[in-house]
């Protein structure tokens, strides 16, 4: 169900504060992060990495959506976005936005729609 809930972990807020070093929202390159953006690691975690950063790099060896990553790590999207900003800025991960039905300025991507359609029909 999608009814609003209180955070189950009472110390949750404190934990998020620590994780994000008090930053409340993503800026820069992660501000456009979409729930369906695919995250791919570009480097292996190095010693001294923050635990969550390491975890992200480990889980994104194969591309994983930001939504899945957040669900696996148990982090709300906006907190995850802050962590991803760090990794993006340091070049440790790459982000690929979902492909919209039409590219900017160009017409609708018929080849893409056809590809989606044939994938669905194979289900």
């Amino acid at each position: 169900m999608s009814a609003p809930r209180r955070p189950t972990n009472p110390s949750g807020l404190e934990r998020y504060y620590v994780l994000t070093k008090g930053r409340s929202g993503p800026g820069g390159s992660a501000s456009s992060l979409d729930v369906a953006t695919l995250i791919v690691s570009r480097t292996a975690p190095a010693p001294g990495f923050q635990h969550e950063h390491e975890e992200i790099l480990r889980r994104c060896r194969d591309p994983l959506s930001a939504a899945e990553l957040g669900a696996h790590l148990g982090l709300p999207f906006n907190i995850l976005a802050v962590l991803l900003t760090d990794l993006l800025e340091a070049g440790h991960v790459e982000a690929r936005d979902p492909i919209p039905a039409h590219g900017a300025g160009s017409g609708p991507d018929l080849a893409l729609l056809e590809e989606v359609l044939s994938g669905l029909q194979r289900l």
Partner: peptide, 8 residues
């Protein structure tokens, strides 16, 4: 990794 994986 992941070559050209894309999402919609």
């Amino acid at each position: 990794g992941g070559g050209g994986t894309r999402s919609v």
